[in-house]
Nucleic acid binder design. Sequence first.
DNA 1: CGTAGTGTTGAGATCGATCAAGCGCTGTGG
DNA 2: CCACAGCGCTTGATCGATCTCAACACTACG
Lengths: 245, 245
Amino acid sequence: MPDHDSCLVSKLSHYVDLPASDKALLARLEEATEEYPAGRKVYTTGDPMEHLYVVQVGWFCAYTGLADGSRHVVRIHHPGDVIGFPDLAFRQTSVDVVAIDHGRLCPFEKSVLDVVLEEAPRLTALLMTLMSREYVIFIDTLRAISRMNAPARLAFFILDLVNRLRIVNPRTGDRFYCPVNQTMTGDVIGLTNVSVSRSWKVLEANGWVERDDNAVIIHDEKALREACDYADRYKEMDVDWFPKR
Amino acid sequence: MPDHDSCLVSKLSHYVDLPASDKALLARLEEATEEYPAGRKVYTTGDPMEHLYVVQVGWFCAYTGLADGSRHVVRIHHPGDVIGFPDLAFRQTSVDVVAIDHGRLCPFEKSVLDVVLEEAPRLTALLMTLMSREYVIFIDTLRAISRMNAPARLAFFILDLVNRLRIVNPRTGDRFYCPVNQTMTGDVIGLTNVSVSRSWKVLEANGWVERDDNAVIIHDEKALREACDYADRYKEMDVDWFPKR
DNA sequence: CGTAGTGTTGAGATCGATCAAGCGCTGTGG
DNA sequence: CCACAGCGCTTGATCGATCTCAACACTACG
């Protein structure tokens, strides 16, 4: 009965087998999916923190505004991601989330997480692990932004994107579609759109990447990795310690 | 029987009441405390990820090295912090951890977390929440580093420190002891020791802070907050959704 | 007294920001 | 069909914040 599979489950099955009871639980908790046209807000900073969302289709962007009007993009979310983890600890959201292109989300209420924690330890472990992985990637990002030059930061951005896309779609290979413009890219890695443009030029001149309209083609992934000392956090997750049931 | 109280419990009781069964569980899982003289390594990048640690006494520093020999400090840990959250997802550690001054840790094995998840949902929720809070603070840090100037970053660093110290010791007030030198400070907020020194001068010249040997005295917290658009994430945690047992 | 660690200060170099202009593409409306 | 506006990207010129390098002061410690 694939129609009744939770979309959280279908995304999370990439990582670990969940017992049927966990799947059934999630299917019960999950609300109807929601469509988001490009540009539509999911929520705004300060909104009550009531839902987590699993991205089913499309790219979403979590960002915060700064006092001077500039913007910092916290995270670009792809299909399979969970939106809202960081704000679990709080009553209010700490970021804005908006759809970059047309997308679909599966919301489920934060308030039902208690049932998950009580009844589905294996699923709980998976959620904790996913959160922890996001956290480590953040550490990597901070490291890149605080200590690396503009082209290296862009290399990091590209590698992070492609490796995440490869999880959900292993056929991704070295070419992917990227709807993120240069201004937004800069807001992710702490640069202006001008520096992003120049950094692209550098990476292209090196023969490491190529751009074709909104597509990115990676020609020398090894060189990109070395440029930003990249560690792929998406490959090896430790699920051995998970509860058995 | 305070001697048998888990030190994790005693630290976590700041946030939420835990059922006696959770406390007993933790006391059982916890290993003997370990003493760390200043400078002693707790673990090194690439070590098998076998323990989490609760800081009981002292300051610890989690950092990663960069290819060019420079260093990025991921986090300064204080009493009450849990060391190792970010690496939960992985088999190997992704940072080095070292004692800044003399300290004491309570290790407990990652492999027993499955028992926690199966038997102590309320405690599990607390751990998830603490991880999530760390994550949000990281987002704030990244925002500061990627978009703010040197004095604002230092202001952020100071406010983060003092607000964390105030959790464990509410009597902290506006003065605290800080064993972190300027080089390490720079490694936290993405500056050189030289820029840190100059930024201190700026904040002092503004009359916002004062230094007295290794102590920091805050004279105008409001101004500091405004300088770096600071949000105190340590005040309001949402524990309402926690499982009741 | 010598050494190591830490912080301060100055001078010059550098990287990315800022400002400004222009190009190509797209969608819209006359 | 054309004019125009809007958006994203590129490029050049200049500016400025921070880095780099270097020298020096101070302290602790053997």
